[in-house]
Write a protein that binds this DNA or RNA. Structure first.
Lengths: 232, 232
DNA sequence: TTAAAACGGTGACAAAAATCACCGAAAGAC
DNA sequence: GTCTTTCGGTGATTTTTGTCACCGTTTTAA
């Protein structure tokens, strides 16, 4: 992952102040001294929709925090890849934090779901802040908890529900994420997120269409019912 | 969960010293002042093999750390329950730590796999130590990381491998845990750990027996090959 | 010792999912 | 425009898993 720009460090003061405002919005609970320190040490990365952020097997030396947009975390195994969970603004990618103390290749991948702005905190500093600022370590722990519960939720879904129910849930979640019931998704990408094959998705969407749960248009899916059969 | 005994607090000094030794063995990386503080504030709980420790939906106000034995963590959903991962000596149950800042019912259950001794740290103190002792927060973070990766591993296995492979892996892991290739497991308990039904396990074990991967005796299973087809 | 519960074996069948093999339509590249 | 790629539809088949039904054995509890 290359540093694309570091405007916040080299730019005019006004830009910096805007950044600090945004930072405070995204991470409101930090100690007041910490914001300036973060801005002085962090870099920014902008990713366009669909762009890869990190790949399984890579080594990380920074902690990413989403400022704007959404990051999709997914795992790969045996040529099958599947969605784990999303990272929203104000949340850090905790699986990277994992590697603060132990330098190991990561066992997941990340992709920008939308246009996404990421704050990258250098590990050296993260270590320092984690020890010196309880407000910072609380944020980290919070993110750990959230990620953990998301992953647990995903695991439960996979083991307990059949593909049809998982698809419904998936579509509803996508709809909530984008705040729209018009979803620009290909059957292939859905299949990949759910760890199955395109044919399976095509068949189920057809069935759901006949049940008037959704309508399939040219290159997108329109949800008709947003909470029906939505489990949790 | 009721307090069964608190010997370390009320007992003679010698017992206390033994406990401190054991504590140092299990958690070697803590700040030296912390051991006495922990012993002064913790309670102990002894669980016999198979005994329930906590149940999904309960509220916790302590952080359990395994001193001896093994705790099995599992999830329940729709009458299906399945194994998430194990907690070994020196490790804390991080999903409980989750509830330090947010008081919510837990969404998992725990059971003593063997005779198990658990150190229970009161949440009030955990909060304090977490802020004041970086060595303590490092342990917490480490446990988070380990649990997270275990869960991720479990998730990947469920989505990528069919039951036969998961069973082989499960048996191998059990064998490693108990340091024996004689496994005292009923088909029912295996089925429950893997989130499937007994018949499925019976069928697969029969198949594996014909492949000379294992031999089934009266109430236990003997593994013949310990690393064959063992994935990761 | 007797009754009840747990255990495991197995056939038959149903449901769910994966896989293969096509096909035409639409979108994007050039 | 034309060519190529992606997309989606669909039948046929197999594999995998889940479910039901029933039975005899072993273990446990009363």
């Amino acid at each position: 992952m290359s540093s694309k720009f570091q405007t916040s460090i080299t730019n005019s003061n006004s830009i910096r102040m805007i950044d600090q405002q945004r930072l405070r919005q995204c991470l409101p609970a930090l100690h007041k001294d910490l914001y300036a320190d973060i801005i002085a040490n962090a870099t920014y990365e902008q990713f366009s929709s669909g762009e890869h952020i990190v790949h399984q097997g890579a080594y990380l030396d920074f902690l990413p925090i989403v400022l704007d947009g959404v990051i999709k975390m997914y795992a790969e195994e045996d040529n099958v890849q599947f969605l784990l969970y999303y990272i929203n603004p104000g949340e850090s990618c905790i699986m990277s934090f994992n590697h603060l103390f132990v330098q190991e290749p990561i066992n997941f991948s990340a992709i920008a779901e939308d246009q996404t702005l990421v704050l990258c905190l250098p590990m050296r500093k993260v270590k320092e802040w984690f020890v010196n600022y309880p407000s910072f370590s609380k944020v980290i722990i919070n993110d750990y908890q959230r990620n953990f519960e998301d992953l647990l939720r995903t695991t439960k879904d996979i083991i307990c529900f059949k593909m049809e129910d998982r698809l419904i849930k998936y579509l509803n979640k996508k709809s909530n994420l984008s705040n729209s019931n018009m979803l620009h998704l290909s059957h292939q990408s859905i299949a990949s997120d759910l760890g199955t094959s395109r044919e399976v998705i095509s068949r189920i969407t057809k069935k759901l269409e006949s049940q008037e749960f959704l309508v399939q248009h040219k290159r997108h899916i329109e949800l008709l019912v947003n909470d029906n059969r939505m489990i949790a």
